[in-house]
């Protein structure tokens, strides 16, 4: 196992993939951004120290999940003395919320879905894609008034349009997961089309030229 061997590239990949899971749990535990950074650090250190004891690599997700949950609770316990006494216990809140956390199996599937989601996003119409990116992938999240201005739609229309866009994304994600990606792309939208084509980043910008011949150096 490359992680056990201390392979730097494998650890980079681990952090890219499982860092999502760790930071997601941090958000679900309502940690603040600095605490989420601490969580990523401490969980990674724990995993690094104990990876040698992991006998079944297939348990890496559930193992990381458990470590992250424990570490997240530790962070909350450290925070506890500073909480006002008349506030409900943070830990009690967390314990109450824990049943709402997705199961390990669901999160394992969701990690794959998160990869597939990029593909699905790339295959829905540009306007919807941009709206979903604006709503859920910007930090800080913009106010609806800003979304309204940017997309030139009424604030009251954002909800229904967002709903339709998410319906498309949901269907596309299912297609991508089932290997039906690319069956239909980008043209199923009924949203306003202003600024279509102006989006940078997601829209494929293929090379302008023919391929070059490759050669092996060694």
């Amino acid at each position: 196992m490359r992680l056990k061997a201390g392979d730097g590239a494998a650890w980079t990949e681990f952090l890219r993939r499982y860092g999502r899971l760790i930071r997601y749990l941090g958000r679900r535990l309502r940690l603040d951004p600095e605490e989420i950074d601490d969580l990523l650090q401490s969980v990674s250190l724990q995993v690094h120290r104990k990876i040698g004891t992991l006998e079944n690599p297939k348990r890496l997700v559930s193992w990381t999940y458990s470590v992250a949950l424990n570490e997240g609770r530790q962070i909350l316990r450290k925070r506890r003395p500073t909480e006002s006494l008349d506030q409900p216990s943070v830990l009690r809140e967390v314990e109450a919320e824990t049943p709402d956390l997705p199961s390990e199996d669901e999160l394992r599937e969701a990690l794959s879905d998160a990869d597939q989601l990029r593909t699905a996003l790339a295959q829905i119409d540009v306007r919807c894609r941009r709206l979903i990116e604006a709503l859920y992938f910007r930090d800080p999240r913009p106010a609806y008034s800003e979304i309204s201005e940017e997309f030139e739609i009424a604030v009251g229309s954002i909800g229904p349009i967002r709903g339709r866009c998410l319906e498309r994304l949901t269907k596309k994600l299912e297609d991508v997961s089932n290997g039906r990606a690319g069956a239909s792309t980008s043209s199923d939208g009924d949203e306003p089309r202003a600024s279509e084509g102006s989006h940078e980043g997601i829209t494929p910008q293929g090379p302008r030229s023919a391929r070059s011949a490759s050669r092996r150096e060694r």
Binding site: R23, Y24, A110, D113, A114, L117, F137, T170, L173, E174
Partner: peptide, 17 residues
Amino acid sequence: ALLRRTLLAIELLSASP
């Protein structure tokens, strides 16, 4: 179920380090 799956994927992807 599909919506839940999509929203969870959004949450995970947006939590990317």
